[in-house]
Design a protein around this nucleic acid. Structure first.
Lengths: 174, 174
DNA sequence: CCTATTGCAGATAAGAAATATCCACGATAA
DNA sequence: TTATCGTGGATATTTCTTATCTGCAATAGG
């Protein structure tokens, strides 16, 4: 079982975007530079976050990305599902049917007990992820992270965020 | 996030081995046939289960595999870790350090908060898997599964299990 | 002994998926 | 008009999983 590296990038980027002010945006290239990532590849992940309505994108110069809603209403589960897809990690191949003795399909109407058990555990995983809000991640970083790296992050955001002229969406609450 | 197909095979095989009697064994080829799997590949997974002390193997003719301990003391977590490895699904690449501004390494002695959060969720997943005992899987199958497929499984096991002459290990309790 | 069956380890290759790069396009602020 | 930025598609490159094959050690049965 492995989570793609894109998940780590996505969480760090959304956490960074959580500290841009108002409806300002931050270009994808700046986010890539912030974490030493490949810009062209990171855009793919940012795109998935946009498609999942976690981020909003603004085209054109002075464009970029911003959170689509308050960090309090974004969970790590939202991000993981946006990047890794909504399918469960355990996919039942119904191999119980592939034995040498062929049995009528009506014997397999009940779902496989092994599948049910694995999905039950996965629900616990997702429930735990859903408890973790992006705002808590950011708050912990501000409170318990090293002051030097925190200051550097704030400076980086301040340097790259770009205010927007006007917005139909109301100001996001910090 | 995806679990390899080997996990499904491993759980089905251990569940099947849970119903062999006494210290009898069942050959890997029979298990492969039971689920229509590639025998040469399944052996790899059975091997991992043996290395993890979930199964015991007996070489030679009349040899095969059996559970290394009672099904009550085997959890789905044991099996998943044996097949997928013990590393967490989320691997922190410490990309927070890769920014343009280089900061002293002493700023990163505290573990990454994102990593900590993801690992916390994963602990919940593993805890849930650890609650699921192989004996419960088998009991559910016997109680709620379709009688036809259950009978077919029992017949298959009875046909392929092979009693052992003598064993230094005491009889496993059913 | 001898043979047949079985598990084990290693090499290897085919296939799928994640990772990474590039380019043409539409939108837009200056 | 121009330069900047996000979007989407095409395409490598790498990595991991899946799968197969071979030779070897162990051992039950004749």
């Amino acid at each position: 079982m492995k989570l793609g590296e894109g998940v780590e990038a996505a969480i760090h980027c959304t956490a960074t975007l959580a500290s841009v002010e108002g409806n300002s945006t931050m270009p994808g290239a700046a986010l890539a530079e912030c974490f030493g990532l490949s810009a062209s590849y990171l855009l793919k992940h940012l795109n998935m976050l946009t498609a999942a309505s976690i981020l909003e994108s603004v085209p054109g110069p002075a464009g970029g990305y911003r959170l689509a809603r308050a960090a309090e209403r974004i969970t790590l589960l939202d991000i993981v599902l946006a990047i890794e897809g909504r399918e469960p990690a355990f996919r039942c191949g119904e191999i119980r049917r592939n034995g040498p003795v062929k049995i009528d399909a009506s014997a397999y109407v009940k779902p496989c007990g092994i599948n049910a058990a694995m999905l039950k555990a996965e629900r616990a995983y997702r429930a735990a992820l859903a408890e973790l809000k992006l705002s808590d991640i950011v708050a912990d970083y501000a409170a318990e992270g090293d002051p030097r790296s925190f200051a550097a992050s704030c400076a980086f955001v301040a340097r790259h965020q770009r205010p927007q002229k006007s917005s139909s969406t109301p100001q996001k609450q910090m």
